[in-house]
Design a protein around this nucleic acid. Structure first.
Length: 287
DNA sequence: TTGTGTTTTATTGCCTCC
DNA sequence: GGAGGCAATAAAACACAA
């Protein structure tokens, strides 16, 4: 915008602290010029209240000079702005009279003040959102770390179990390990172990992850007795296939879900996976 | 002193509302 | 159509480092 102003210092304006053109102002295209002599006469930023009522003060003012409001004027305007940031015509006139300003100047001041307030408000909002985002990010990171840690624990426990199974080939593993081990694992994870009284006669439990080696393998090679684990799994998968409720997920993905939340999980858990279920449903329950 | 960045005052043009 | 609001911008006034 190529605009400049010439401020005409009329006596009428001068007597009323008006170096600015108010409503019905004259404005000119072109640059405002200020000579070296004029600029050397610049006043300090703040004017004393006494000066405000000094005629000479205004007579000294040179034409075309844009003057800042005094601290008193700004203070009063700020107070008024705090009360109400919009300016009705009556209040504008009153303020203008009180401050010795043009109503137009008061209106402009309020306009600019609203703009400054809005900018500050945007900055505050940004800070709040930023803090919230940072906090969420930090929580997420720590959950991801926990998740990784738990996964690796599951893997290492699985490996241990397999090694132990090979070391005692003749041992009837079902007596010694098959029932105790899941409980141990559950204790490590702080899980609650319950019997699956809801399932069809079998007591199953499993610790699994979609992306990691599974504790429960097929009934032929399984370390665990089929009647306790694999069969239960197969039965469950079978029943889901039969009634058409299989949503394509691994059977194991919902093994952890407490019975009362299973239905909910089937509806919502598809996109969440194993860890999503953990987060969504709270501590997993073995059954 | 001077260059540069920031703040303040004011204008312009567009939009909405009555 | 006029009044008033807002965004964008100009330009003066000011602050401050080099």
């Amino acid at each position: 915008m190529e605009s400049g102003r010439l401020f005409f210092d009329t006596s009428a304006c001068r007597g009323n602290n008006m170096l600015f053109l108010g409503d019905g102002e004259l404005s000119f295209r072109g640059r405002s010029m200020m000579s070296m002599e004029e600029s050397s006469k610049r006043r300090p930023f703040f004017t004393s209240p006494d000066e405000l009522f000094d005629d000479e003060y205004y007579e000294e003012q040179l034409p075309e000079k844009k003057r800042r409001l005094t601290s008193e004027q700004v203070h009063l305007l700020e107070k008024s702005f705090e009360e109400e940031n919009k300016l009705e015509p009556e209040r504008k006139t009153q303020l203008a009279k009180k401050l010795g300003l043009q109503p137009r100047q008061v209106a402009v001041w309020f306009q600019n003040r609203r703009a400054r307030w809005k900018t500050k408000q945007l900055e505050r909002d940004y800070d709040v959102l930023r803090a919230s985002y940072d906090s969420l990010l930090s929580s997420y990171d720590s959950l991801v770390k926990d998740n990784e840690k738990l996964k690796s624990e599951v893997v290492s426990l699985n490996e241990k179990l397999q090694v132990e199974a090979k070391e005692i080939p003749g041992e009837p593993i079902s007596d010694k390990k098959s029932e105790a081990m899941p409980v141990d694992i559950a204790q490590i994870f702080g899980m609650k172990v319950v019997e699956d009284r809801l399932s069809t006669g079998s007591v199953g439990s499993a610790v699994v992850d979609e992306g990691s080696p599974q504790l429960v393998v097929d009934s032929v090679d399984s370390y665990f007795p089929a009647e306790n684990y694999a069969v239960a799994a197969v039965e469950r998968v079978q029943s889901e296939e039969d009634d058409g409720s299989d949503d394509g997920r691994s059977y194991f993905s919902d093994v952890f879900v407490a019975p009362e939340t299973e239905h909910q999980n089937n509806e919502e858990g598809e996109a969440m996976g194993w860890w999503g279920n953990m987060l969504h449903n709270g501590p997993p329950v073995l059954f």
